[in-house]
Simulated scan of single mutants.
Amino acid sequence: MGAELLRRFGNSDLQLSPLGLGCWQFSKGSGMVGKFWPVLSDEVIHDIVRISLEGGINWFDTAEVYGGGQSEEMLADALNALGDSAAGAHVATKWWPIMRTSANIPKTIDERLRRLKGWAIDLHQVHQPYSFSSAANEMREMAKLVKQGKIKHVGVSNFSAAKMYEADKALRESGLRLVSNQVKYNLLDRRIEQSGVMEAAKELGVVIIAYSPLEQGILSGKFHKNPELVKQIQGPRKWAGGFKTGGLKRTLPLITRLDELAVKYEASASQVALNWLIHAHGETVFAIPGASKPHHAQENVKAMRFVLSKDEISELAAISAACGRA
């Protein structure tokens, strides 16, 4: 993928691929949320990172809470093992705010940098809107880290429109801007279009980073074609309503159309769903599909190789509104 397909990342000077790689899966089964995914070997993690980079994905999203820093370390090890071929890769991580105050942000930054083993933090995000401090105070602490050169840009995650405005206003006081808001967004969950989050992002020039872009794999269509696969899902996600018989029946019209477009573009339903995400709102939305197997990384890369037409984007939006969480 050529540099011409890179995009300016909102209010920053970063030039990033429309898809990044979500690295929650690199948690090694550790910590509070690490058990959500099977434990991946170092070799598999290295292959996933290598394939992503070779295919033009140039940024990786991790977090303090993913395995208590294990994901950050595994990502750093994989990038460092690649040597010169990882040059130009960018790393985003997140501070966990629950049961903490903003004073914890500077206290934990050195641990983030230690775990990342020499990789700069191009984007540091507040992972949730819930802490003992205001968003404004969190942003003031983040701004200090930018001034100290410990991080480059500031983002948030799961913030409402109102909190986005509050965060951006506080950063402006330090001559900075809010760069991103990482939220759940996909063809089956478009609530941010109704909640004001998408509108605020466009008004502020803030990037939306879409996590769970395939609705835990439902948009791949594999569970519609073989419902028995639901029984094989590891972790709590198998209990989500979308995997139940009624949920799969409700979303079948969307899967059918994704499959038809996949034939046209010599792609997969997953790739069409990701392509819709990164083109439906101009260059506002970036997405971070994960990968727990090397072939998932290859799938992600191919999703950036074509562009749906405006009519197809509109048609998918209309179908999804009828069967998704609008």
Rank of each mutant, 00 (worst) to 15 (best):
T93W: 01
V39D: 13
A86Y: 08
T108N: 12
E54P: 05
C323S: 03
F243M: 12
G196H: 06
G34R: 05
R191A: 12
Q125V: 05
Q15C: 01
K28A: 13
V33H: 08
A135G: 13
A103H: 04
I98L: 14
I45C: 09
G31R: 08
L6W: 07
G282L: 01
W276E: 01
R115P: 01
P289V: 07
L171I: 11
E199K: 15
D110W: 04
A269T: 03
I288D: 03
E312T: 00
H281S: 08
R325G: 01
H224A: 12
S52Q: 09
Q182C: 02
L14N: 01
G88M: 08
I105R: 01
S160C: 12
L113N: 02
R190E: 07
E203Q: 14
H127C: 07
V301F: 03
P253Y: 14
Q148S: 09
P253T: 11
S157A: 09
M164Y: 06
H295D: 09
V49G: 01
T284R: 00
A103L: 07
D42R: 08
G205Q: 13
E73N: 11
A200G: 02
A103V: 02
P106W: 10
S314I: 03
Q25I: 08
F36T: 09
R100P: 04
A136T: 13
R305M: 14
L176N: 03
I319L: 02
K144D: 12
T93K: 00
E215H: 03
K152W: 02
L219H: 03
K225V: 03
E299Q: 08
G34S: 05
V44M: 09
K94T: 14
A92F: 06
D47A: 14
H127Q: 09
S174R: 08
V154K: 01
S52A: 14
G324I: 07
